[in-house]
Design a protein around this nucleic acid. Structure first.
Lengths: 205, 205, 205, 205
DNA sequence: AATGAATGAGTGTTCATTCAT
DNA sequence: GATGAATGAACACTCATTCAT
């Protein structure tokens, strides 16, 4: 149990402003590539004033990462044993695609963190991820056992969904480069493609 | 065309040593997170001596990135119109998975670069990528038109293959965390899964 | 002559609280090593509120130092020509030892100030010290001239008394380290020793 | 056992220059009151260049303190059971007075360190001090038991010698203020006084 | 009287790069 | 080719002091 610090309205607001600025800069430049000056500039605060709201650079980053991991969990948790398995998976894919649309910077920050060894991710949160994954893997396994979906490795199924959906945020620059000239929405078209791929790919025999 | 500098044998060897060291450190820590001291240490050279072979940090990184992009192209280029389309795609997937196994640091460095806006990628090379992709997309489109594979968006098919295969290198930390306790080889199992997924998912109607 | 500022009761009380806190922190960490935050914390006040009672850090320190110098004079002033010379000196030594016991932090703050050049000591007070010393030196000189005590340099006699007695406050850490394991009171034992040393040392021929 | 770092001639020289500058500035301003800029200025080096020879401020200070403690021991170690006890003690007093003359800054730095809790003094060195003191105290005790000197507490005798002799370095500012106008050498006169005081004070009954 | 918020000037330390030999 | 030495520009963070309420 950690004591929750009491904060005034202005503190909550300023922290929010700082976190928004930090998200922008950190997701673009990484932890080491980001300077407090940059964040302060974007936030419209002086550097010492920013450090009045957060004790140091590390804490700003950690706070951001914590929030990101929490929203990362949400769609996964909504996978339920009830209802049609393929519907559930399609809904999950669409939810993840919507996250890549709405929170691309968060996705990139998260990707960057994993890429560099995830050294700053709270051990507790890593545990939590593992536990949720175990629960969902068991659900998927039961679908397989009941021949509702094809017989595949449930862990790798999840990896594939994560990889493909997050790719639209994390590799957006590459996608935009490759698709330059096309005027459809890559995320909408991508979602259609993924729906097809996974629906067909997972149809039971 | 850039004039190719002539280098002695010892220069080529030392550059190779430096690039290997740099790959290790850059892929772990990113550009800004890496110091020349770290690279020099791993390379077993003094810092000024290292800078005798490369003019500056930027050039080491750029050289590394250039090499990586070249090997990134190889499997893609091998996709050929001849032969069975699904065999071709399966071969591509396996080749990309082998690259994630053999060159995970390169994959991560590349991912990191795209993630952060790809600002250091040579424009010429980006063009080249686009052209190759266009060629391969046309091949895939013809397969679709000839009902050899399902009717899907060929660009997004490529994205999905890139995303899923590179994920095994880029997100290895997360994969290992989730799979802790299992003793199968994630890349082998993952390759099987992806073969199933894409083979079934792309079967023509 | 400086106009004495009029202060309300609450102002006097708060100043007292601040000075007590400041004494503690300054004597432990020196002027530069002390932060206003530390003092405010110990005083139980907010930093700006503290600065409502004192204009700045310097003034807190100066005020403290001024008070310390005043109590420093007291035992010296009590040396009187009347009575037995050796009794007078013994009484002075004991009074100084009691000050080292009761006001060790003040002693250390004073020592620290002298050690660092005494730049913050009021010139007026320095003058005052000199005048009192002159008076007492003359008394001691008369004792010598009248063969009441041994023929020694009266200035250096005072220095020796100051040095030995204040040592028990200023070097308490060293004394405690050296005497660890003994359970007698260092100041009491020290006073006995000093009484012997100076009584015998100053006996007239 | 600590590996002794090998140093080039220029490194030894520059370290010496830096330590001399640091001694001057630290002894005047204390640890926190000293900035690396000041030291660098006095040493005639740029700040980063200075940090090429010492890893950080703390190390400069520690190195200095270590050297000081070593010279602090020397006169104490020379007290020997052989020869006349009073001669031995007089020699010790004179040696300590010479140190106050030759190394006043070192004395002040040491005093400052003890004053502020001696937090930076190596535990090993503190042990060593204790052991040497124990040895010398035993010698003094034997002198007392053999009625060669008066029956006094040997620990407090040492404290008195330390206090009085070091006083001429540590409180030099005060001494000079009090003695202004006199043109004799305070340390010479002080040594005479102390010789008288301790010789008479310690004469056996 | 009191306090949350804000800031300019530092302050120790890092680092890519250059110099000198 | 190789390396010890040197440095300017940053950079994270601190702190006395001031502002606003």
């Amino acid at each position: 149990m950690v004591a929750k610090p009491k904060r005034t309205r202005i503190q909550r607001e300023k922290r929010e402003i700082i976190l928004n600025a930090a998200l922008q800069v950190f997701s673009e430049n990484g932890f080491r590539g980001t300077t407090l000056d940059q964040i302060a500039e974007v936030a419209g605060l002086s550097k010492p004033n920013m450090l009045y709201y957060f004790p140091n650079k590390e804490e700003i980053y950690a706070s951001l990462l914590h929030d990101i991991l929490e929203i990362w969990f949400v769609p996964l948790e909504e996978i339920s044993e009830d209802g049609d398995p393929l519907d559930q998976l399609r809904a999950y894919i669409h939810a993840k695609m919507e996250m890549s649309r709405k929170y691309p910077m968060q996705s990139r920050l998260f990707a960057n963190e994993i890429l560099h060894g995830a050294g700053r991710i709270d051990q507790d949160i890593a545990e939590e991820l593992n536990q949720i994954v175990e629960v969902k893997v068991k659900i998927i396994q039961r679908w397989i056992d009941n021949h509702k979906i094809a017989k595949v490795d449930p862990y790798h199924l999840l990896f594939a969904i994560w990889a493909t959906t997050q790719h639209y945020a994390d590799f957006a620059v590459q996608i935009d480069t490759v698709l330059q000239g096309r005027d459809d929405d890559p995320i909408a078209t991508g979602a259609d493609f993924l729906e097809t791929l996974f629906t067909r790919g997972l149809l039971p025999d």
